[in-house]
Design a binder for these strands. Structure first.
Length: 274
DNA sequence: CGGCGGTCCTGTCAGC
DNA sequence: TGCTGACAGGACCGCC
């Protein structure tokens, strides 16, 4: 999925067409994505005005004028496609279609259907099951070296697995986990509990830096990722280790290695990451 | 409870 | 070209 920077980019892209506009037509083209849509999902959205679009962790939150929020997760392959007017021919996997009073048409397209959409009371969002217990926003003030160190204390899993855990820090995914660890000079195999003090400080900083850079670049992109305005992001050109197996380490004379942790690829330089 | 592995689904790509 | 298997940005669930 889109990780934090991609979700942030999409949320920003949706603000202009959606905020202060009313959803005049909403259609679901199947009964479920990852889970079934809530009861009367389309009916409840129809006629609602969108007050604000924002991001929480990897979720897009659209606050509505009836006290509810539309919660959307892009999963691995979810895309928000915007067009002026409803396209005559829909794409395969266009699962939800919304039209605004201003003539914008938003399609949620998700081939793998790991994504989700839900309706939840806005003032209970943080208590909502998928959000409850999620860690601090890495780009906010509530995230720092000491706070990260505290979250890692006693954790016997690898530091790579730990920062992918949304309860430790929100929004880091598989790409930025590798990138942040590389920048911090920390081996992905190091025990999470062994990342304390100065190392935790450096890792927290690296997470902030890499995510900020990616947000500024408009998010990364894989082949099939298109952000809300249809433009491709450019951050993938700045990956230092992700998908760079066998290539020279950008820091010096090491070689980037690919390993598997928890069934997922990790890229790192064994020479400069300890 | 913490941690791990399996699982959901489709598309793409490498290799034969 | 067509087939097969591996792999893909996530996160829930059940098991130990």
């Amino acid at each position: 999925m889109p990780e934090l920077p991609e979700v942030e980019t999409v949320a920003r892209g949706l603000a202009k067409p959606l905020e202060r506009h009313r959803l005049v037509k909403v259609e679901t083209r199947r009964g479920d994505l990852r889970w079934p849509f809530p009861k009367c999902f389309a009916e409840k959205l129809t006629g609602r005005k969108v007050l604000k679009v924002r991001r929480r962790a990897k979720y897009i939150v659209a606050e509505l004028d009836d006290g509810n929020s539309l919660l959307a997760h892009l999963g691995m392959s979810g895309r928000m496609l915007l067009s002026k007017g409803r396209p005559e021919v829909l794409e395969t996997h266009d699962h939800v279609i919304m039209e605004t009073d201003d003539g914008w048409c938003l399609r949620f397209n998700d081939a793998r259907r790991f994504g989700m959409m839900d309706l939840v009371q806005t003032d209970k969002l943080e208590q909502h099951k998928p959000i409850k217990g999620i860690g601090p926003e890495p780009l906010g003030n509530a995230f720092s070296g000491p706070i990260l160190a505290a979250a890692l204390k006693g954790k016997k899993t690898s530091i790579k697995a730990a920062i992918l855990d949304q309860k430790v820090v929100a929004g880091v995914g598989n790409i930025y986990a590798s990138e942040a660890l590389f920048r911090a000079g920390i081996s992905p195999k190091r025990l999470a509990m062994r990342v304390q003090g100065e190392r935790a400080e450096k890792l927290a900083q690296s997470i902030k830096t890499v995510l900020n850079e990616a947000v500024a670049a408009g998010g990364s992109s894989l082949r099939d990722y298109v952000q809300a305005d249809g433009e491709l992001g450019y951050f993938q050109h700045r990956w230092r280790v992700y998908e760079k197996e066998g290539q020279p380490c950008p820091n010096g004379d090491g070689t980037v290695k690919r390993i598997t942790q928890g069934g997922r690829s990790t890229f790192y330089c064994p020479k400069c990451q300890k």
